[in-house]
Amino acid sequence: MSAVTTTSFGTIWRSARRNWMALAGLSMLAAAVIVAVFAPLIAPYDPKADLKVSIDDIYAPPSAAHWLGTDDAGRDVLSNFIYGARVSLIVGFFASFISVFIGGTIGITAGYFGGRVENILMRITDIMLVIPDLPLAVVLVALTKPSLMNIILVIGLLGWTGTARLVRSQTLSVKERKFVLRAKAIGCGHFHILRRHIFPLVLPLLVANTVLVISLAILEESTLSFLGLADPTTLSWGQMLNFAFTRGGVSAGAWWALIMPGLGIVWVVLGCTLLGQGLEQVLNPRLEWHHLSVGPKMVARGAKEERP
């Protein structure tokens, strides 16, 4: 039987445990979240503290006092890096929340009601899909005040198209199932059917998609910050890259100021992607081989499952 017939979070957890991608991604993401939450405890210095800086402190190489050296203002790179995780993750979580909310609502509405409603909503989605995100985001952020809130809003309001398409297609398949027809025969209204019969079966896919959208949002935030469009007082990983790049970090040979934020971005994005794709493999029956097909993957999967 396909994975989707009995999709509850219990089953998902059980199959996710066997999926190394999901597990690795989850651990990477969890590590990043822990670092962000406990930043004041972990970081050796407070990045907002006033510093008396001498010329030797600027782009100082790694030492015992500053394990990862200092940046252009003489601040500790490790502390900046740890606090930067907060900004990146906050933007990632909130922006993807907005995206998934908008995309989920549009997708489920379009898929369920069909007809003209679907046509209008999906054409809007297509228009949003073909507009290049980055230039539009740059314009929007440049027009509004560069603040954390605006960055979250811009990323969230531009990033929902993929979710909308995915949720719509899942809704289309769920609404054809007979228990939805039976619900109509019982006399259930549209809202009740959406809430009790459609949404719970779309939800697992939505969760997997959210994780992927988080990684995109973090990447986009880094891009915007790197381009100098973020609030200069909030220090995100993109901002660190931006400062190091524009304020002579490269010519000073201060590799430590460039590599750490880059690694941070890669770590979180990779974690999200692994977790998201792992969850998707568990949840999306279309990624699985048909049970009657004789493919190498099917054999491998069967062999794997026999091991205790």
Partner: peptide, 21 residues
């Protein structure tokens, strides 16, 4: 809605006509 209470239906496929969750 009122008529729904009076006329009810049993479907062909009992494996599909119950919400699995």
């Amino acid at each position: 809605q009122r008529l729904c209470r009076q006329i009810q239906m049993v479907f062909q496929d009992p494996y599909e006509s119950l919400n699995p969750l």
